[in-house]
Amino acid sequence: SNREKAKQAFKELLRDKAVPSNASWEQAMKMVVTDPRYSALPKLSEKKQAFNAYKAQRE
């Protein structure tokens, strides 16, 4: 689905920018907000969900 693709793109973005798994949401956003993939997930709640999944995978 498109939403799954968007989630993957967002997680790839976090990986590409080397966002550490112990980063806070605010720290992570400063690192990725300028990338076009930041807008892949329109809802903030979805971004946070993908971010938390990313962190869980990295730990």
Rank of each mutant, 00 (worst) to 15 (best):
S1C: 14
N2W: 08
N2V: 00
N2G: 09
N2E: 12
R3V: 11
E4H: 12
E4S: 10
K5Q: 12
K5H: 09
K7T: 14
K7A: 14
Q8A: 10
A9N: 08
A9G: 08
A9Q: 13
A9D: 14
F10V: 03
K11H: 10
K11E: 13
E12V: 01
L13W: 00
L13A: 07
L14Y: 00
L14I: 00
R15H: 14
R15M: 15
D16N: 00
D16T: 06
D16W: 02
D16F: 00
K17V: 03
K17R: 11
A18E: 13
A18R: 13
V19I: 04
V19L: 02
V19Y: 00
P20T: 05
P20H: 01
P20K: 01
P20D: 05
P20S: 03
S21P: 10
S21D: 12
S21W: 12
N22H: 10
N22G: 09
A23D: 03
A23P: 03
A23Q: 03
S24H: 07
W25T: 10
E26M: 07
E26S: 09
E26P: 10
E26Q: 05
E26R: 01
Q27V: 07
A28C: 08
A28N: 05
A28E: 05
M29T: 08
M29A: 11
K30F: 01
K30C: 05
M31H: 09
V33W: 13
V33I: 13
T34H: 14
T34N: 15
T34A: 14
T34M: 12
D35C: 00
P36D: 12
P36Q: 08
P36F: 07
R37N: 02
R37S: 04
R37H: 01
Y38C: 06
Y38E: 05
Y38K: 09
S39F: 08
S39N: 15
A40D: 01
L41E: 10
L41N: 05
L41F: 00
P42G: 10
P42W: 02
K43E: 14
K43V: 04
L44F: 03
L44H: 01
S45I: 04
K47H: 05
K47Y: 03
K48T: 04
Q49G: 07
Q49A: 15
Q49S: 10
A50S: 06
F51K: 06
N52T: 09
N52C: 11
N52W: 05
A53V: 08
A53Y: 03
A53P: 04
A53M: 05
Y54H: 00
Y54C: 10
Y54K: 01
K55P: 06
A56F: 03
Q57N: 10
Q57D: 15
R58L: 15
R58D: 08
R58Q: 15
E59S: 05
